[in-house]
């Protein structure tokens, strides 16, 4: 651990995120909005830290639950498409 810290001192930003950094960035990591470097740091941390790993799991479960609620009204899509196609052809009659 000490050697690891010394390497980090020479190399700059640690290769593995701290709990604090992971907590701050876990949602960005799951959304794919972090840059590659930060994303790798958080990923490495989540592999080894149970608490942060569970936090990531909980956000993933929430995101999946929300995404599963997407309810596309197929009839409405068809009606709107027909509306769009119609007035793109007969635009002389636009209000």
């Amino acid at each position: 651990m000490r050697l690891f810290s010394m390497v980090n001192m020479f190399m700059g930003t640690p290769a593995v995120a701290s709990c604090r950094h992971a907590h701050k960035n876990v949602q960005g990591y799951l959304d794919g909005t972090l840059d590659d470097r930060n994303s790798k740091r958080v990923a490495l941390h989540l592999e080894t830290c149970r608490r942060c790993g569970l936090e990531a799991d909980s956000y993933l479960a929430i995101k999946r639950s929300l995404a599963s609620r997407v309810d596309v009204d197929v009839d409405a899509v068809q009606r709107i498409r027909a509306f769009g196609e119609r007035f793109s052809i007969e635009n002389d009659h636009l209000p």
Partner: peptide, 22 residues
């Protein structure tokens, strides 16, 4: 001009209907 508008509408707007509805 009218044809261009219709064509642009079909190209840019119609594919986005589902997202717009959500």
């Amino acid at each position: 001009k009218d044809q261009e508008r219709k064509s642009a509408f079909s190209m840019y707007v119609l594919p986005e209907i589902e997202v717009l509805l959500r």
